Amino acid sequence: MSNLTMSLQSAIIVAPNGARKTQKDHPALPVTRGEIIQDVIACRSAGAVMVHLHARNEKGLHSLDVADNLPLYN
């Protein structure tokens, strides 16, 4: 692959939700498992190749708990 070809390649990486914002900040922020999955699928359909997301607990707050994160990867 030539240097020119390599310089023209790009990848779309998305972050559909953050760790701090809630639906009070933006009603369309995906926080439930279903909302996050739906958003990731839409991003993939638009060309995204990688996603960075934050799992949420039952209150819609950022969670590092394995029980809240695993359902997003299965």
Rank of each mutant, 00 (worst) to 15 (best):
H52W: 08
V51I: 14
H52A: 00
D68H: 06
T22A: 07
A15W: 10
M6Q: 11
I41R: 14
L29Q: 03
G47Y: 00
P27Y: 03
G18R: 03
V40H: 06
Y73V: 14
P27E: 00
A11Q: 15
I12C: 06
E58L: 09
L4S: 04
L53V: 14
L4K: 06
A19N: 10
I13L: 10
V31K: 03
A15K: 13
M50F: 14
L64Q: 12
R20I: 10
N17M: 09
L72M: 03
D25W: 08
D39L: 02
N3W: 12
S63A: 06
M6H: 10
G60E: 02
L29E: 06
H62W: 11
S45V: 08
K21I: 06
V40Q: 09
V66H: 05
R33Y: 07
P30L: 11
I13P: 04
P27T: 00
G34N: 10
P71N: 03
M50Y: 14
E35Q: 15
A28I: 04
P71Q: 03
G34H: 09
M6L: 14
Q9D: 14
M1S: 04
L70S: 00
L29I: 14
K21Q: 13
S7D: 05
S45C: 12
S45A: 15
V40M: 15
V40S: 01
L61E: 14
M1H: 04
R20C: 07
I37F: 11
A11W: 13
N17A: 07
I13T: 05
N57S: 02
V31A: 05
S10K: 15
H52M: 03
M6D: 07
V49Y: 04
R20H: 06
S45N: 15
N69F: 09
V14N: 03
A46V: 05
A46S: 11
L53C: 13
M6S: 11
